[in-house]
Nucleic acid binder design. Sequence first.
DNA 1: AATGATTAGTGTAAAAACAACACTTATTTG
DNA 2: CAAATAAGTGTTGTTTTTACACTAATCATT
Lengths: 227, 227
Amino acid sequence: MNTKSYYSSYPKFHMAVDCIIFGFEEGGLSLLLQKRNFEPAMGEWSLMGGFVEEGESVDDAARRVLTNLTGLKDIYMRQVKAYGEVERDPGERVISAAYYALIDINKQDKELIKAHNAFWVKLDELPHLIFDHDQMVADALSVMREKALSKPTGINLLPEEFTLTQLQSLYEAILGEEIDKRNFRKRIAEMDYIEKTGHIDKLLSRRGAALYRLNPEKYSKDSKFKI
Amino acid sequence: MNTKSYYSSYPKFHMAVDCIIFGFEEGGLSLLLQKRNFEPAMGEWSLMGGFVEEGESVDDAARRVLTNLTGLKDIYMRQVKAYGEVERDPGERVISAAYYALIDINKQDKELIKAHNAFWVKLDELPHLIFDHDQMVADALSVMREKALSKPTGINLLPEEFTLTQLQSLYEAILGEEIDKRNFRKRIAEMDYIEKTGHIDKLLSRRGAALYRLNPEKYSKDSKFKI
DNA sequence: AATGATTAGTGTAAAAACAACACTTATTTG
DNA sequence: CAAATAAGTGTTGTTTTTACACTAATCATT
């Protein structure tokens, strides 16, 4: 019996991924958006997306789209959910899985971004996006913030060794709110896998600041983290 | 220009839904599983699934599968995520979105279930499931429990008017752990949208117990709920 | 009528977590 | 040597969470 025939009577659909690419810089997050210079919805703003290819997992498609646009590889991406309304894309039916990523706003291939007519837009200045992309962004933000509260998130955007001020800025950007410095440091001090390296940074401040790193040997999925 | 042609060069995929149907009864949750009497993976255990049809949203496909199996309509279902590994179904490539639902284990169409060769299995006695269905169940449980901690969940499984003991049993089943009675009642007392009706249940206990109901007019998405 | 069984209903106190808050220190620059 | 800058540090009050045990009402049994 030919196993390829079990499902042949069922319909097939275009499957896409849409990437919510958050860019971190001191002061807040931005989103990498595309001003569409192609149909459909030419001239409007949208997330960066792409179609899943034969023989490619949906996760891999998301990674490919991210790499094509930014040149970055091996970036943590997480699926938010799939969006499957019939008319979500008015052109033709497409089911799309949304993924988010968080990257350093200064570490991507500017040429590639320009070639795709993509721009960084601050989170609090977002234009209206096509289709259900506004919803995708809202969902992704909520998932990412939820995660950031209970797992170290985005530490890979900082240098290998970082100051607590840098770490706090990262968290303030992700959460979109200010954090009390003393309370923040108290909480970090409880996590033994974020450890002082003994090195001192002399570039970011006059006084100098202790450098820390995340010790991957001490960190596991069950390690406690609470901001 | 024919809008139907924008995407025509991209591949298409079978799109399925898999339903994690939790059944509530005093004492714990069960899962409605299918002992497959068809290929592929005949004889093995799996979630109840189905293919998305032309002109049908993915959400609607999940609702249809639930209705076909249980006879139940208008049940809250929530998507967990989409699963898109290339080889996840060894027969042929299928992308699947997982949805969970929580229903009353005594309120479904037993004939339909029998016709589908489906059975209720206690959560702590689950067999190994085919493909990535174990992962789907784990993910769904985690999403549902997360939700139950911050939103009233499953109250529709109780009678219109219910006792606090019933509500506590529901929550103990969902969370899979015992809850302190006094602390539980204290927390419920803080939610003004769960209100005493003034009626007394005389069936479930000798003493009789005050009946409560969820007042939908007082309840909104932003209402506080914390177990 | 009294006893036993069953489930409903109730409060307190200790511990832990969280939130608010301001000054001193080290260093560089002018 | 004064000014500027960012790092670093504790305490206190408030809120939240947890642990814990007895009385009340009713029905069934004898």
